[in-house]
Measured scan of single mutants.
Amino acid sequence: RSRTNFTLEQLNELERLFDETHYPDAFMREELSQRLGLSEARVQVWFQNRRAKCRK
C-alpha cells in the first residue's frame, strides 16, 4: 500500500474533528470516512498518528 496523500479539505475536516475529540467512536469514524472518501482504517490511523504528534 502506498502512502495516502490527504487533500487540504480532508486535513481541515480531520483537524476540526480532532479539536472536538481525540478519540472518535466507530460511528464518527465511519461517517467521516464516507464523507471524505477515505477508508475507515485510514481515518483511524490518522487519529492515532495525530494523537502521537500531540504527545510530543
Score class of each variant (00 low, 15 high):
Glu31Met: 07
Gln48His: 15
Glu30Gln: 13
Glu40Arg: 07
Glu40Asp: 12
Arg29Phe: 06
His22Leu: 04
Gln34Pro: 01
Ala26Asn: 13
Gly37Lys: 10
Thr7Ala: 03
Asp25Gln: 10
Arg3Gly: 15
Thr4Ala: 07
Arg1Thr: 04
Asn12Lys: 13
Arg55Asn: 02
Gln44Cys: 10
Lys53Asn: 09
Asp19Lys: 10
Glu30Ile: 13
Tyr23Val: 06
Glu15Tyr: 15
Arg50Gln: 07
Asp25Lys: 06
Arg51Val: 08
Lys53Tyr: 05
Glu9Lys: 07
Gln34Leu: 07
Arg55Thr: 08
Pro24Tyr: 01
Phe27Asp: 14
Cys54Ile: 06
Pro24Leu: 04
Leu32Val: 08
Gln10Val: 04
Val45Ile: 10
Asn12Asp: 07
Leu14Ala: 00
Gln44Arg: 13
Val45Pro: 01
Glu15Pro: 01
Val43Tyr: 00
Met28Glu: 08
Gln34Asp: 07
Lys56Pro: 06
Phe18Glu: 03
His22Pro: 13
Gly37His: 05
Phe27Gly: 14
Leu14Cys: 01
Glu15His: 03
Glu20Gln: 14
Arg51Gln: 03
Met28Phe: 01
Thr21Lys: 06
Glu40Gly: 13
Asp25Trp: 00
Cys54Phe: 12
Leu17Asn: 07
Arg29Thr: 10
Arg16His: 11
Leu11Asn: 12
Lys56Ala: 08
Leu17Met: 09
Lys53Val: 12
Arg51Cys: 05
Gln10Asp: 08
Ala26Leu: 10
Phe47Cys: 02
Asn49Asp: 15
Glu20Thr: 15
Asp25His: 03
Pro24Arg: 00
Glu15Val: 00
Phe6Asp: 04
Gly37Arg: 09
Lys53Phe: 11
Thr7Ser: 10
Arg35Ser: 06
Thr7Cys: 05
Gln34Gly: 12
Leu36Arg: 00
Trp46Arg: 01
Val45Asp: 14
Thr21Arg: 06
Asn12Gln: 13
Gly37Asp: 10
Gln10Lys: 06
Ser2Tyr: 08
Trp46Glu: 01
Trp46Pro: 04
Ser33Tyr: 10
Arg3His: 11
Arg42Ile: 12
Asp19Gln: 14
Phe6Arg: 04
Tyr23Gly: 07
Asp19Arg: 15
Leu36Trp: 06
Ser2Thr: 11
Ala41Tyr: 01
Arg42Phe: 09
Arg50Gly: 01
Phe27Glu: 14
Phe47Glu: 02
Arg3Phe: 15
Trp46Asn: 02
Phe47Thr: 02
Thr7Arg: 03
Glu15Cys: 03
Leu8Ser: 13
Leu36Glu: 01
Phe27Tyr: 12
Ser39Phe: 01
Lys53Gly: 12
Gln44Ile: 10
Val43Lys: 05
Asn12Arg: 14
Arg16Tyr: 05
Ala26Gln: 08
Ser33Glu: 04
Gly37Thr: 03
Tyr23Leu: 08
Arg1Leu: 07
Ala26Ile: 10
Val45Asn: 12
Arg16Asn: 07
Leu11Lys: 14
Lys56Asp: 07
Arg42Pro: 00
Glu13Pro: 00
Ala52Thr: 10
Trp46Thr: 01
Leu36Cys: 13
Arg1Asn: 10
Cys54Lys: 09
Ser2Arg: 11
Gln48Glu: 12
Leu11Ile: 11
Glu30Ser: 15
Ser33Val: 08
Arg16Lys: 15
Asn5Asp: 14
Lys56Ile: 03
Phe47Met: 03
Glu31Asp: 08
Gln48Ser: 08
Arg42His: 15
Leu11His: 15
Glu30Gly: 13
Asn12Pro: 02
Ser33His: 12
Phe18Pro: 00
Phe6Ala: 04
Phe6Gln: 02
Arg29Asp: 06
Glu40Leu: 09
Gln48Met: 08
Asn49Gly: 10
Ser2Cys: 00
Thr7Met: 05
Gly37Pro: 00
Ser33Trp: 02
Met28Ser: 11
Arg3Asp: 15
Asp19Asn: 15
Glu9Val: 06
Val43Cys: 05
Asp25Met: 03
Leu32Phe: 06
Leu36Ile: 09
Phe6Cys: 05
Ala26Ser: 15
Leu17Ser: 07
Met28Asp: 05
Val43Ile: 10
Lys56Cys: 15
Arg55Gln: 14
Ala41Glu: 08
Ala26Gly: 09
Ser39Lys: 10
Leu14Phe: 04
Arg51Ile: 06
Gln10Ala: 08
Glu31Thr: 13
Gln48Thr: 11
Arg42Gly: 10
Asn49Thr: 15
Asn12Tyr: 05
Leu32Arg: 01
Leu36Pro: 00
Glu30Val: 06
Ser39Cys: 05
Asn5Met: 09
Pro24Cys: 02
Ala41Cys: 10
Leu14Gly: 02
Ala41Pro: 08
Asn12Met: 06
Arg50Glu: 10
Ala41Asn: 04
Glu9Cys: 09
Arg50Asp: 00
Arg42Ala: 15
Gln44Tyr: 00
Leu11Cys: 05
Arg1Gly: 10
Gln10Tyr: 02
Asn49Ile: 03
Arg3Ala: 11
Arg35Trp: 01
Gln48Cys: 08
Phe18Gln: 01
Leu17His: 07
Cys54Thr: 07
Met28Pro: 06
Ser39Val: 05
Ala26His: 08
Arg29Val: 09
Asn5Val: 11
Arg29Cys: 11
Lys53Ala: 14
Cys54Ala: 12
Asp25Tyr: 02
Gln34Trp: 03
Leu36Lys: 03
Glu20Tyr: 09
Phe18Leu: 00
Asn12Ser: 12
Glu13Asn: 04
Thr4Asn: 15
His22Lys: 11
Glu13Val: 06
Met28Val: 11
Asn5Trp: 07
Leu36Ala: 05
Gln34Ile: 10
Arg51Leu: 08
Glu9Ala: 11
Asn49His: 06
Arg51Ala: 04
Gln10Arg: 03
Thr4Pro: 12
Gln34Glu: 09
Glu13Phe: 05
Leu32Gln: 02
Lys56His: 10
Phe18Ser: 02
Glu40Cys: 09
Glu31Trp: 05
Lys53Asp: 11
Glu9Tyr: 05
Glu9Ile: 03
Arg51Asp: 03
Phe47Val: 05
Asp19Ala: 13
Asn5His: 05
Arg29Pro: 02
Asn12Ile: 07
Cys54Glu: 13
Ala26Asp: 09
Arg50Leu: 01
Asp19Trp: 07
Arg1Trp: 01
Gln48Phe: 06
Gln44Asp: 11
Asp25Leu: 02
Leu8Val: 15
Gln10Gly: 02
Glu20Asn: 15
Gln10Glu: 06
Arg16Gln: 12
Tyr23Glu: 10
Leu32Ile: 15
Glu13Asp: 08
Arg16Leu: 10
Ala52Cys: 11
Asn5Tyr: 05
Glu31Ile: 03
Leu14Arg: 00
Ser2Glu: 15
Gln34Asn: 14
Arg50Trp: 04
Arg55Ser: 13
Leu32Thr: 04
Gln48Leu: 05
Gly37Tyr: 02
Arg1Ala: 14
Ser33Ile: 03
Pro24Glu: 01
Glu15Ala: 01
Lys53Thr: 15
Arg16Trp: 07
Met28Lys: 11
Leu36Asn: 02
Gly37Asn: 13
Lys53Leu: 07
Phe27Ala: 15
Glu13Gly: 10
Leu17Asp: 01
Ser2Leu: 04
Asp25Gly: 05
Leu32Asn: 01
Arg16Glu: 08
Met28Tyr: 04
Gln48Tyr: 05
Ser33Met: 07
Phe6Ser: 02
Arg35Glu: 05
Asn12His: 09
Phe27Gln: 13
Gln10Leu: 00
Gly37Trp: 02
Arg42Cys: 15
Glu31Tyr: 00
Trp46Tyr: 02
Glu30Thr: 13
Cys54Pro: 11
Ala26Met: 11
Leu14Thr: 00
Arg42Glu: 15
Arg50Ala: 10
Val45Tyr: 08
Cys54Gln: 15
Lys53Glu: 14
Phe18Cys: 03
Trp46His: 06
Arg42Asp: 15
Ser2Gln: 12
Thr7Ile: 03
Ser2Asn: 11
Pro24Ile: 00
His22Met: 14
Val45Met: 11
His22Tyr: 03
Ser39Met: 06
Cys54Ser: 13
Glu15Phe: 00
Lys56Glu: 14
